[in-house]
């Protein structure tokens, strides 16, 4: 039996069914002008993650989690491979083109491998808060979220400035954005409803959603969908080509390339990234930038009257 209330719709109204952000159509907005007339802001991120051996999986296990009975040394080490080896291949691939990555870092990685995080900072990469580890998700009803955020950001801020945040598995509670804004976070990477930044309400402050794609992410395509490396290459190239074409008439666009050092960093896969970056960087008007740089330019770069 279904209650008659099931056919009542108290939030059936103009716009969204919540108050977090406003309804807005991508094509109808002001055009964005990137610095130096660039058409595409290229935003590469390379996540550094740690999947602890005593995984609890609350309230769910994210992509990449451990799978066997305890102790799952197999998956634990295969993920940690990214921090020891994979990320250094990504650095080389990006260095060829002078690209600085955004680097979402689990605080546990920063504490365990401080030399790695220092190396990222030294290259001008932007640190992005990425929670404590891949087994401490943010979710409604959890305890101590404020302390968890403070601990994660506190650890990472010991290495440099942090303005952005990617929740582990993009999982949030109803309070996550408010707590992040209170901690001085300017942008989050969890919401996948847009190709450009937009403003969200966060407990009396404003926080921005940055278009950190979940679709052309190496883990989604290679691990989640079981596509091969050539299919990943095609999808990234097709994504870029369409955005580039669109930027001719609709203003600046953002090409997000979300990577995981434990996925793309393998010897047989890194060449795919190199091929894609060569394709992108051959084009005129590509501006490789970090999330904070893109957000600042977006805020200052709206073209009047467009």
């Amino acid at each position: 039996m279904i209650s008659d209330d099931y056919l009542k719709y108290p939030r059936r109204r103009y716009g969204m069914d919540h108050d977090r952000y406003e309804w807005s159509m991508l094509h109808a907005r002001e055009k964005i002008a990137w610095p130096n007339g660039a058409r595409i802001a290229l935003w590469v991120t390379a996540a550094l993650q740690w999947f602890p051996l005593d995984q609890q999986g609350k309230p769910f296990k994210p992509l990449g989690s451990l799978q066997t009975a305890y102790p799952d040394l197999r998956h634990y080490t295969l993920r940690d491979y990214g921090n020891r080896v994979g990320v250094y291949r990504i650095m080389k691939a990006l260095d060829k083109h002078g690209i600085k990555a955004g680097v979402p870092v689990n605080a546990a990685v920063a504490a365990r491998y401080p030399s790695l995080v220092k190396e990222c900072v030294a290259r001008g990469w932007e640190l992005i808060g990425h929670g404590l580890d891949m087994d401490h998700l943010h979710y409604e009803g959890m305890e101590g979220e404020q302390a968890l955020i403070a601990k994660s950001l506190g650890t990472l801020r010991g290495f440099g400035k942090v303005r952005g945040w990617l929740s582990p598995a993009k999982s949030e509670s109803h309070k996550t954005l408010d707590l992040l804004a209170a901690e001085g976070i300017d942008y989050v990477c969890d919401w996948v409803n847009d190709d450009m930044p937009y403003a969200m309400r966060a407990g009396g402050k404003t926080i921005h959603a940055m278009p950190h794609s979940a679709d052309v992410d190496d883990a989604t395509i290679l691990i989640g969908m079981h596509h091969d490396e050539d299919e990943l290459r095609d999808q990234l190239i097709d994504q870029f080509d369409l955005l580039y074409e669109e930027s001719a008439t609709q203003g600046g666009r953002i090409m997000s390339v979300p990577l995981h050092s434990w996925v793309i960093g393998h010897p047989y896969r890194i060449g795919t990234l190199e091929t894609v970056l060569s394709h992108i960087m051959r084009h005129k008007g590509v501006w490789p930038a970090t999330g904070a740089e893109i957000l600042d330019a977006w805020q200052g770069g709206r073209v009047k009257g467009s």
């Binding site: 969204m16 309804w23 807005s24 159509m25 991508l26 094509h27 929740s167 993009k170 999982s171 949030e172 969890d190 919401w191 996948v192 409803n193 847009d194 190709d195 979940a214």
Partner: peptide
């Protein structure tokens, strides 16, 4: 968040 916002992408973009 990912589930809801992914669907919302359809109408916005």
């Amino acid at each position: 968040v990912p589930g809801y916002s992914y669907r919302d992408y359809g109408n916005r973009a």
